[in-house]
Amino acid sequence: MTLAEVQKGQKFIISDISDDNIRVQALRFGISEDAGLFCEEKIPGGPVIIKRQYQEIAIGRNLAKNIKVELSQ
């Protein structure tokens, strides 16, 4: 499934980011393929807000559609 399909409150890990630049930028924010993430908020039709520890990041919906995730638990 993609990040755009994750529901608010779900925990997940990212399995694949197709865009090279975005993947690298995500690594800098602390989002690597094994990092446990949490969907903090989904703005309807808009960005997905993900959280890891105290770090929150807003990811535009189109971008979220190109990020593959796996739900944890």
Partner: peptide, 19 residues
């Protein structure tokens, strides 16, 4: 400001911009 940008992102993407 970044929260406003996230909130209005959807409106602005429809005209080719982002938040």
């Amino acid at each position: 400001m970044p929260r406003i940008a996230a909130l209005v992102d959807r409106l602005l993407t429809s005209i080719g911009l982002n938040g």
